[in-house]
Simulated assay, not measured.
Amino acid sequence: MRSLFLLPCCLFAWVALSACKDFVEPNQLAFVMGTAVDRAEDGLIEVSDQIVIPSQLSGPRDKGGGSDAGSSIVMSATGRDVFEASEKIQRKMSRRLMTSHRVLIAVSEAFFNEDDAGKLFDKLGRDPANNMRDTTIVVRGGSAKEILMLRHPLERLTSIAAGKELQINGLTHFSSRQLILEHYTDGVRPLLPVLQIRKLKTGVKAPVPFAALSGFAVLNKQLRVKGILDEDESAAAVWMSGKGAYQGMTIPWKNGQGYLSFRLVHLKRKIRTRSCGDSKCAELVVKAQAYLLENTTSLDLSQIRNMTDTERYMNAEIQKEFQRTVNKVQQWGPDIFGIGEHLHRHNPYWWKNRRKSWDEQFKTLDLNVKADIRLVSVGSSGGQMK
């Protein structure tokens, strides 16, 4: 009987002693939704975290239509690396920082150009607490911290708004995980979205600062910004690098006689390479399905002849525009299209002696663009409405 009495007592003590000592309740956590990284004095790094206040998210919006000023706070600290700066932020907090729900990492252009950004992403890839799904962007013309401190007219948090802006426009594959993979891959270079603070008029009041997508940054192997593509060039580069899902396009008709606007879906790209003497030649084939949404020309697209003529003309215009973008990127050097990675897989022995100097090799690569767009719909009417 004594043994039977001691057995439950031992089991109870064993369960009590094996409980988690570092367990943190949800009301003891501070959820980080966005992180900004800037340069600081004396070679230090400034890290800023946008921390959400859950009790304020369900509250009413302000009368101006913007986000509630109390829905988040931004805490900053400097350090020799990301961990040291984050630890200084933690000491200022009454809750433990939790980054697994983070959706945005904003890095200033100045930091990319003047610091070793590769060290910045070491903690992202090494620390298992990071989800690696957060979107990485470049902030141009200011500090990344300013982006987190701005208010957004539609969303309560600017970090959530930036991620949605990319997603809703079909721009994918810009996570921190993708950036780290491209950084450690010899045959492809990173392409990152660029946010810039602009003035936006949302009502009768004066224009307010607003973080808007303003192009894409081309980075080299050392994660230095080699150039910024404008909106039209960015659309072409995103498509040719395989990071877009859909987009719209407006092209002028022959001799400036009106415009044709298309919705392009099922964006695909294919890389073809062949030997050209001692070097290689490459061809980028872009494919999509086009839906005509607006026609201000005199064409009656209910006629098959006009449809085939329009499709042929659209492909020619896309090829010319995309070729200009390719030529511009080749002048900078970084291979954001992944041509080198394609050669690595299909011609490993040829690639072995050229991978270390691929940025210079890419500048002289014979690279052409071919468009294969199919016009699948001209809408519910043939000619222009008069």
Rank of each mutant, 00 (worst) to 15 (best):
L4I: 11
P8T: 07
A13I: 15
A13W: 11
L17D: 00
S18A: 13
A19K: 03
V24R: 15
F31C: 00
G34S: 11
S48Q: 07
I51S: 12
V52N: 03
L57V: 15
P60L: 07
R61K: 14
S67N: 14
V74E: 09
R80S: 10
E84Y: 01
Q90E: 11
I105N: 07
V107N: 12
S108N: 06
S108K: 02
F111Y: 15
E114L: 08
R126M: 09
R126S: 12
N130R: 01
N130K: 00
D134F: 11
T135H: 08
V139I: 14
I147R: 02
R151L: 05
R151T: 01
R151C: 02
S159Q: 11
S159K: 09
A162C: 15
G163R: 07
E165G: 14
E165S: 15
Q167S: 13
L171C: 00
H173G: 00
S175G: 14
S176D: 07
I180S: 09
I180G: 06
L181N: 06
D186M: 05
G187L: 10
V188Q: 11
L191Y: 06
I197D: 09
K199I: 01
K201M: 02
G203A: 10
A206F: 05
F210L: 06
A212F: 08
G215Q: 08
F216Y: 13
Q222G: 10
V225M: 09
K226Y: 03
E231P: 01
E233W: 01
S234C: 10
M240L: 15
S241P: 10
G248P: 04
T250V: 12
P252N: 02
P252V: 02
G256S: 11
L267P: 01
K270L: 05
A282W: 05
V285E: 14
V286C: 11
L299N: 05
D300A: 06
S302V: 00
Q303S: 13
R305L: 08
D309I: 12
E311D: 04
Y313R: 06
T325F: 07
K328N: 12
I339D: 04
G340V: 09
E341S: 13
W351M: 06
K352M: 09
K356Q: 13
S357G: 00
Q361N: 12
D366H: 13
V369P: 03
I373C: 08
G383V: 05
Q384W: 00
